[in-house]
């Protein structure tokens, strides 16, 4: 219980800070909406083309929006040495990791919750189906789990805006491919069974990288 109380305290602190500045949500949301609108104009009105390209467009948008958001995840902790302040507290490094994962996940899900209905409206696709929402949530969990670890790694480098995507995107390629394939089948009206194997890959990725990042995080921040 104490573990989760402290995780919630970190998440609440991040949420409160974000509510005051709206740095992450505002900039990432503007980026996301712009990309959706550009894709919408680029692909025209042919529904056949849209069904074909929509899953890729959706996940390209979310992947780059995610990079933008995760790039900011540890910046408030670096200002005035707050990460050192947290590390001097009598809490395990894992609490810091889980707290940052939960806050990043929260920000990403808020952005996706706004972007999906707009995507559904502009592309005239069933983006708000339970299937697409499940795929989106599960993929975002894995994406954020890895992204938070690499964000902590990149924040100490000079060119952190460059370092994060270079390190992070190759690692998340499997889950993005899984999400594109599963979303494509879901948007085409296929049953759960038709994309269960892709969903399995996404869940396995989530589990492996959540555990691995949880275990490795202490080494990343201490060294």
């Amino acid at each position: 219980m104490n573990f989760w109380r402290k995780v919630i305290a970190i998440t609440w602190k991040d949420a409160l800070s974000e509510m005051r500045t709206r740095e992450i949500i505002f900039s990432v949301l503007v980026f996301t909406l712009l990309v959706i609108v550009i894709f919408n104009f680029a692909f025209g009105t042919s529904q056949e083309v849209i069904v074909l390209v929509a899953p890729g467009s959706l996940w390209v948008t979310f992947a780059f929006a995610g990079v933008l958001s995760l790039n900011r995840a540890f910046i408030p902790e670096k200002e005035q040495g707050c990460l050192e302040g947290l590390m001097a507290c009598p809490i395990s490094r894992e609490i810091i990791y889980v707290g940052k994962v939960v806050s990043s996940l929260l920000f990403m899900l808020i952005i996706e919750a706004i972007a999906l209905p707009i995507f559904a409206f502009l592309f005239n696709l069933p983006m708000l189906s339970l299937q697409v929402i499940t795929i989106t949530v599960l993929t975002t969990v894995g994406f954020v789990a890895v992204g938070t670890l690499f964000s902590a790694l990149a924040v100490n480098t000079k060119a952190r805006e460059m370092v994060l995507p270079i390190l992070f995107l190759p690692i998340v390629v499997p889950i993005i491919i899984g999400a594109v394939e599963a979303s494509g089948l879901a948007l085409a009206g296929e049953s759960w069974a038709s994309f269960s194997s892709w969903l399995g890959i996404i869940v396995a990725f989530d589990a492996i990288f959540l555990v691995a990042s949880f275990l490795v995080f202490a080494f990343v921040v201490e060294e």
């Binding site: 602190k13 500045t21 408030p76 200002e79 040495g81 707050c82 302040g85």
Partner: peptide, 17 residues
């Protein structure tokens, strides 16, 4: 760490709070 207090030239404070 519970027994230690740290004051540095950095404040460890969040400016937006």
């Amino acid at each position: 760490r519970r027994q230690i207090g740290v004051v540095s030239h950095q404040t460890f404070l969040y400016g937006n709070l």
